[in-house]
């Protein structure tokens, strides 16, 4: 089950998106996030979703793979949706006991859910199509100006890439340790919250110890391969903007501008009210 989590994992494929410069993808993702929060209506999000779907198509990554990897996030999502639905005040549609569902509640919930899904898919598209080392290289280059004010940009990005590299290994390890402790009669599925938290100690302690052991071994292995920080280090794949990157940037610009314009579409809430109005 834990093996299914694909957050931050790279998906090997040969596509235009994979070949883009990581900086282009970082900029694109950043713009996408910003624009998601500027969009005001459901229509805008629908258009954004359509655009995203086109990009997914271009990455050659099967949609089921992306969706399956985000199962755990959807649980979180459900939580926010339900919360929104119950908390937002407005025209009451249904009232059962202390639970009141309002028109505005449903609207906000749907809107938030869509926004979150798009956000998560957008971000994971970046990590799915960019290897951690490329990603950190890109980040390092984009953040290079910060070096002047003594921010250890290289070290931060190296740490990030190693963290991404070890997520699947530690996930698998957690799975193994949980099984081993279950075999000794450990119970992770019943009892109060406190009991369940306590039941995790036999999993967490070995996991932390193992993470330290791995870190130690990895550090030795890196040293043995002459790693000494940023100094004198070259790159096999030097970052160089290609023609496709310039085109991609243009697409990003146009796309974002277009999405921003959706703010001025005729009020979507009115349509929504009209539909929900039919039922009340």
């Amino acid at each position: 089950m834990l093996r299914d989590i694909t957050i931050g994992q790279y998906y090997s494929a040969d596509s235009v998106i994979h070949r883009l410069d990581p900086r282009t993808k970082l900029i694109g993702t950043f713009c996408f996030i910003v624009i998601l929060f500027l969009i005001k209506g459901v229509y805008g999000l629908l258009i954004a979703g359509l655009l995203l779907l086109l990009i997914v198509k271009a990455t050659k990554i099967p949609l089921w793979y992306i969706v399956r990897g985000q199962k755990s996030i959807y649980i979180l999502l459900m939580f926010t949706v339900v919360l929104n639905m119950l908390m937002v005040k407005g025209d009451v549609l249904v009232k059962i006991g202390f639970i009141t569902i309002t028109r505005e509640g449903i609207y906000t919930a749907v809107f938030m859910a869509m926004r979150l899904i798009l956000l998560v898919i957008g971000c994971s598209l970046m990590t799915l199509t960019t290897t951690p080392l490329q990603l950190t290289d890109g980040l390092e280059r984009l953040l290079r100006p910060l070096k002047k004010i003594k921010v250890p940009v290289h070290d931060i990005s190296m740490m990030m890439s190693i963290a991404l590299r070890f997520i699947p290994i530690l996930m698998e390890e957690t799975d193994k340790i949980m099984k081993a402790q279950s075999a000794r009669g450990a119970d992770f599925e019943s009892g109060s919250i406190l009991q369940r938290a306590k039941a995790l100690i036999p999993v967490l302690v070995p996991l932390v110890i193992s993470a330290f052991r791995r870190a130690d071994e990895l550090a030795t292995a890196m040293e043995a391969r002459c790693y000494r920080g940023d100094e004198g280090r070259t790159r096999m794949k030097e970052l160089k903007y290609q023609k496709r990157d310039h085109i991609a940037k243009l697409v990003i610009l146009v796309g974002c501008a277009g999405l921003y314009m959706t703010r001025f579409l005729p009020s979507i809430t009115q349509t929504f009210y009209a539909i929900t109005g039919l039922f009340s």
Binding site: I177, K179, A180, A183, R184, G185, P202, V205, P206
Partner: peptide, 26 residues
Amino acid sequence: GLVFQYPEHQLFEMTVAKDIAFGPAN
């Protein structure tokens, strides 16, 4: 009883006795 590969990686208690006691205590 199932002993996994590299079972020493699942030890977690402060003492040997406590670790062995984990199963019977459960």
